[in-house]
Design a protein around this nucleic acid. Structure first.
Length: 910
RNA sequence: GCGAGUAUAGCUCAGUUGGUUAGAGCGCUGCCUUCACACGGCAGAGGUCCUCAGUUCGAAUCUGAGUACUCGCACCA
């Protein structure tokens, strides 16, 4: 038999002989009883890499499919949160690659300014050194060494996750090419007048001694106090009491404010207060910002230490007095007694001092919220300083329009609101950081005219006055100022356009919702600014992965799951499969390490099913062309299952419902292929009819091939290992690897609805018989006879499948027909359109069987009553659609049939 | 304070535009180990679909109110 067959899947499948495995992929000839993932995974990954299967180069004849990998921090380590999100991306990329796209998953890492610098500073601290002692150059050198040593560990972890990114394109935000992109966008925005330097209050991290943005803060509720401080009024025997949570800032007070309509204080407006401890006169001003009902209705105003006071101070032209150092200790502007104290120590001392002076009116507990620096976990101190800002309004406008106009879509859609809300209320972006790790701000200050210069090359003379007295800004740019270029910079922007023109815009961005502001929105802005087009059409937000208590994975809690640990235990495919199967479409999911065991068992199941099937094909042996007719009802049913599962999986992937896709793969393999497909096939495989046997093997190989293709994006290793062993033809244009083989298309698959329907009736007969046997406590293998009463049509079906039914239900003999009589003392199994009787005289407990039947009668009776009541209701029969009505009637008939049969059976037992 | 989300079996989650007897996996119970896999097979038990009210012939699904949890944003003298 040497037929060449074109399969309905659209790809070719056959074997005259076993195809020799690729020479560089040493395959074991037989499959071991238990799948040991570690034996194969590394070898398979090397094999893929060697054949450059993940490489994507510009090819105008093919459609690109591009996903940008969210660049992890170069020094970070993988946890299952990443694991899930990145696996989803890999599944999409692998699926599109198999579907004929030029698929690119672009990998890269981020230098993560603050995070990395903090780590290196900590390691210096352990040596008793500071970065200032070391100096900028030596410190930066340490950072580079640190990055070389610890950086990239996460990329190795990506490899063990099986991620199919194009490693030749690995990008790093500090690469010269990407750095020049940073310079370019800075210069362009500067020339557009969108970058400016301003003095205002910033979120100051006193540990890292840098400004941080609003988006890098966490809020923490703490139990604090509200202190009522008495400020004497100059020239009057009166005083005014202010309430504050931060007494230590009183040294910087430059006014007291009250509401203009507050009758209590109206007469004091314009008077002056003598500030205790510092003996300075400050005015009492009126401002509607002050709420009369809060505290005492009078507020101390400290423009240099509070954002609201800063704004109020601007309105009243108040001086700003900064009373703290960059480490948040009290500076030289405060009285000697307090100088050098840490702010919270100073707070206690100030309260003490007021008490001593008899000027503390009240101290009450008060719940308040303090901003915490995400990185150092230190409480932020608002600090007056000069920083560089990007004017975001103009950049935000097109980004808003893109989401509203549908060029940019969110999955799930609810995140669009979050995105729009932020953009519509956007604040200017503080982009300077007082760090040494990052892209240094390309600004030069002129010593002569104080002007600022910038440019793509370092200026040697001032662009305003021509002076050579130039000094570069000491600060670096916010990390996100390089990450927001991710859609363009790794493709060569601004110097090269080839790849950019081909791959831009990308297809989908898959990332965590918490960086919608920090990253996603900004990429959209930069994409629109540089290319006039959104950088990606779809944004898919991954679920937040939590532990079983519902707490987010975090380093400090140590509750994260390390993917490498679960991989070591269950294998990569198991981890990938479980991770995406457990991940819901929106929101959050709870995971524990034990959850991955189920994945491991699933992988093993697939392995063993394949091992069983391949045991019927000797190496070098041929298989016959697929002939659905010859495989009978079970074969056509299975082929139909494959087609329907393919359809479901296709739909799930198209709508980013990756968890559903995983679920459908699971049920196809376990439920359809193993539990019914292989079990039914055993009849043919054990039979003596060589033709049927050969057809069955061919059908099973065909289905398994389809299964492996469908499952490959989710579990690439085990599927590849098995697929390489399937019989194929050496002369065919056949890809070297499953990862580049064609993904099944449901539109190309043949369906067998009539055969499938028939076979599922057989299945329900088998299930019913098993069920009554089991419930009656009859030994599972006791070969009993069965008599089935049904229409002659069904009898034909059952007769034809008698061998299968007997095998699957452990029967010795099956008789069926419309005139079948019920033997006395028999078990009854009732299904849709049939009654099966199993004579069981002497082996059943009559009483037990009666109880069982009574319970069944009662259960079915209740259902029937419900249906009949429904059908008796004219409102229902008049208004329900014909289809529903028909369905309900059919259901009633079926229930009536079952009830009658059960009752009769009960009678004969008695 | 504003906004959003979630609430279905012991646990983790499905449940498509309202319409069969509300499902799956894990866990649990019973039976079954020559014949791919005990990481297995077969059969079961288990649900006031958060509460109340409403719309409808019909509600897990739609509406309103409430409760609980989660997440944003703002305020915080």
């Amino acid at each position: 038999m040497r037929l060449l067959v074109v399969q309905p899947l659209g790809y070719k499948l056959d074997a005259d002989k076993t195809f020799p495995f690729p020479k560089d992929l040493t395959m074991t000839e037989t499959l071991a009883a238990t799948y040991d993932p570690h034996q194969y995974e590394e070898k398979l990954y090397d094999f893929w890499m060697k054949h450059k299967l993940f490489r994507a180069v510009k090819d105008p004849s093919r459609k690109p499919y591009t996903i940008l990998m969210p660049p992890p921090n170069v020094t970070s380590q993988l946890h299952m949160g990443h694991g899930t999100g990145y696996t989803m991306q890999d599944i999409l990329v692998r699926w599109k690659r198999m579907s004929g796209y030029n698929a690119l998953w672009l990998p890269g890492t981020d230098h993560a300014g603050i995070a990395t610098q903090m780590m290196v500073e900590k390691s210096l601290e352990a040596e008793g050194k500071t970065r200032q002692e070391l100096g900028r150059e030596a410190f930066t050198q340490r950072l580079v060494e640190w990055k070389d040593k610890y950086g990239g560990l996460i990329l190795k972890q990506f490899r063990s996750m099986g991620f199919s990114c194009d490693w030749d394109r690995l990008a790093y935000t500090m690469d010269p090419q990407l750095s020049s992109a940073v310079r370019r966008i800075f210069v362009d925005l500067y020339n557009d007048g969108l970058i400016y330097r301003g003095e205002r209050l910033v979120n100051w991290d006193p540990v890292l001694k840098t400004a941080v943005s609003d988006d890098e803060l966490d809020n923490q509720d703490i139990q604090g106090h509200l202190w009522h401080l008495v400020y004497p009024i100059e020239g009057l025997e009166e005083a005014i009491t202010v309430a504050t949570t931060r007494p230590e800032t009183m040294f910087g007070d430059t006014a007291v404010a009250v509401n203009p309509d507050d009758e209590r204080y109206k007469h004091l407006i314009g008077k002056q207060v003598r500030l205790p401890l510092v003996d300075r006169l400050i005015p009492i001003v009126a401002d509607s910002y002050v709420k009369s009902e809060f505290g005492t209705g009078a507020v101390k105003i400290t423009p240099a230490h509070d954002p609201n006071d800063f704004e109020l101070g601007k309105r009243h032209d108040l001086p700003r007095i900064n009373v703290m150092t960059d480490a948040a200790t009290m500076n030289e502007l405060v009285p000697a007694r307090f100088r050098g104290l840490a702010r919270f120590v100073a707070r206690k001392e100030v309260v003490k001092a007021f008490k001593e002076l008899g000027l503390l009116a009240k101290e009450e507990p008060y719940k308040t919220t303090v901003p915490i620096s995400e990185r150092s976990k230190e409480i932020i101190e608002p600090r007056l300083s000069k920083q560089w800002y990007v004017d975001m309004r103009k950049l935000a406008e097109p980004a808003i329009a893109a989401a509203k106009g549908g060029q940019l879509r969110f999955h799930p859609d609810l995140w669009k609101k979050t995105y729009l809300h932020w953009l519509e209320n956007i604040q200017d972006w503080c982009i300077s950081r007082q760090l040494w790790w990052g892209h240094r701000i390309p600004i030069w200050y002129c010593g002569a005219c104080q002007g600022t210069s910038t440019g793509m090359t370092d200026p040697t003379t001032c662009s305003h006055c021509g002076s050579k007295d130039l000094r570069q800004d000491e600060d670096v740019l916010d990390t996100w100022f390089s990450s927001w270029l991710w859609p363009v910079s790794p493709f060569g922007w601004p110097d090269q356009r080839d790849d950019l023109d081909y791959f831009y815009p990308t297809d989908v961005l898959v990332t965590a919702p918490e960086i919608i502001f920090l990253w996603v929105a900004r990429m959209v802005m930069v994409g629109l600014k540089t290319r006039g087009e959104v950088p990606f059409r779809d944004v898919f937000l991954t679920p937040t992965v939590c532990d079983k208590q519902g707490r987010k994975f975090s380093k400090t809690l140590g509750n994260g799951i390390d993917p490498l640990q679960v991989i070591a235990k269950y294998g990569t495919d198991a981890v990938r499969f479980t991770a995406v199967q457990l991940a819901p479409i929106g929101g959050r999911t709870r995971m524990s390490p034990e959850d991955f065991e189920a994945g491991g068992r699933f992988i093993n199941k697939l392995w063993n099913a394949s091992r069983f099937l391949l045991g019927y094909i000797k190496p070098g042996e041929s298989i016959v062309p697929l002939d659905p007719e010859a495989t009978g009802l079970p074969g056509q049913w299975l082929l139909n299952e494959l087609a329907e599962a393919t359809d479901r999986i296709e739909k799930a992937l198209n709508t980013y419902r990756i968890n559903d896709a995983a679920d459908h793969v699971y049920h196809l393999i376990w439920g359809s292929f193993c539990d019914w497909g292989l079990e039914s096939a055993k009849t043919a495989l054990a039979g003596s009819d060589e033709r049927t046997k050969a057809s069955t093997i061919s059908m099973l190989v065909y289905v398994l091939d389809g299964i492996l293709r469908l499952a490959s994006p989710i579990m690439p290793f085990v599927t590849e290992e098995i697929w390489q062993k399937l019989p194929r033809h050496p002369d065919w244009d056949r890809p070297v690897s499953l990862t580049v083989a064609e993904f099944p298309k449901s539109s190309k698959l043949k369906r067998f609805p009539a055969a499938a329907e028939k076979w599922s009736t057989v299945q329900s007969l088998v299930s019913e018989i098993r069920s009554v046997r089991s419930q009656s406590g009859i030994a599972p293998k006791l070969p009993l006879k069965a008599f089935v009463r049904c229409s002659s049509e069904l009898a034909n079906l059952f007769d034809g499948a008698a061998t299968d039914i007997c095998r699957l239900a452990s029967l010795a003999e099956l008789t069926s027909g419309p005139d079948t009589k019920r033997p006395g003392q028999s078990l009854a199994a009732v299904g849709r359109g049939f009654e099966a009787f199993i004579p069981a005289e002497g082996i059943i407990d009559i009483g037990k069987e009666q109880t069982r039947l009574k319970a069944e009668v009662s259960r079915v009776g209740k259902i029937l009553n419900g249906i009949e009541a429904k059908l008796a209701n004219p409102n229902f029969t008049d208004r329900a659609p014909a289809e529903v009505l028909e369905q309900t009637r059919a259901q009633r008939d079926n229930m009536r049939f079952q009830l009658e049969s059960l009752q009769k059976n009960l009678e004969t037992l008695a």
